[in-house]
């Protein structure tokens, strides 16, 4: 066993400096690394490039890093629900690259599998295709998309062990296992950190080899973006 445990988010982010590029797991506010986001705000690192499907909401998730102007560039697929984001984008303070959600996933996947690039049909004939190589396979056009080359991946899992093996729950899995594989340094925060041997190898979603630092997070708010229910 290789012990990946660190004391908490401060130690996990110890060498993350200004200008770092970071893959941040989560879809909407579901499965986001809440503890590390708070620690990034506290640390005050600037000029970050954040790669994440969404940009949080005002005052929560990545929205916290936008409020403090720590983000230079955001690479996302969907950024509604955040007024501060829209303001910074339209005023030109924030650089934004919008990419299809599948392309975001596949570019993580390529990085995680050691592939420099991949072809996808998403975005052919649209703004997304501008400046990209297009190639025809069997009568259909595809765009060449590069693997992400990010300094860090910060992910959130449900359970993890000392080796960094991770298990995700329900739809909070989303981009987390892909980003875990794609980071040069991968930091995992988990709701429950257990001793080696406590997780069944057959149930592991992310093998510990992809995780460099792991800690048990505290005080998860798990805010719901759109609470929708049936009346009894």
């Amino acid at each position: 066993m290789i012990d990946k445990r660190v004391s908490g988010p401060t130690e996990a982010l110890r060498d993350l400096g200004d200008g770092a590029s970071i893959l941040l797991g989560g879809f909407g506010l579901c499965g986001i690394p809440e503890n590390c986001i708070d620690a990034l705000v506290q640390k005050g690192v600037k000029n970050l490039t954040c790669i994440s499907n969404n940009a949080g909401v005002d005052g929560f998730g990545i929205g916290k890093l936008l409020a403090t102007r720590q983000v230079k560039k955001m690479i996302s697929s969907y950024v509604g629900e955040n007024e501060e984001f829209e303001r910074q984008l339209l005023s030109g303070e924030l650089e934004v690259e919008l990419i299809p959600q599948g392309t975001l996933a596949f570019r993580c996947l390529a990085a995680g599998y050691g592939m420099p690039a991949l072809y996808t049909a998403a975005g052919v004939g649209t703004e997304v295709a501008i400046g990209k190589e297009t190639r025809n396979f069997d009568g259909r056009d595809y765009l060449l998309e590069r693997a992400f080359d990010a300094d860090y991946a910060i992910v959130k899992a449900w359970k993890g062990d000392h080796d960094g093996n991770l298990i995700f729950r329900r739809t909070s899995r989303n981009f987390n296992p892909l980003m875990a594989m794609a980071g040069k340094i991968t930091i995992a925060e988990v709701e429950e950190l257990v001793a080696p041997g406590m997780l069944d190898p057959d149930h592991i979603h992310t093998p510990g080899i992809f995780v460099h630092r792991i800690f048990q997070g505290k005080g998860y708010e798990k805010r719901i973006e759109k609470k929708t229910t049936r009346k009894r």
């Binding site: 697929s77 509604g80 984008l89 339209l90 299809p100 959600q101 599948g102 996808t120 975005g123 997304v128």
Partner: peptide, 14 residues
């Protein structure tokens, strides 16, 4: 500017 989310993938797929 909201973004395409998964729509560009969904419509591009066969």
């Amino acid at each position: 500017v909201k973004g395409m989310g998964g729509a560009m993938d969904l419509v591009a797929a066969s």
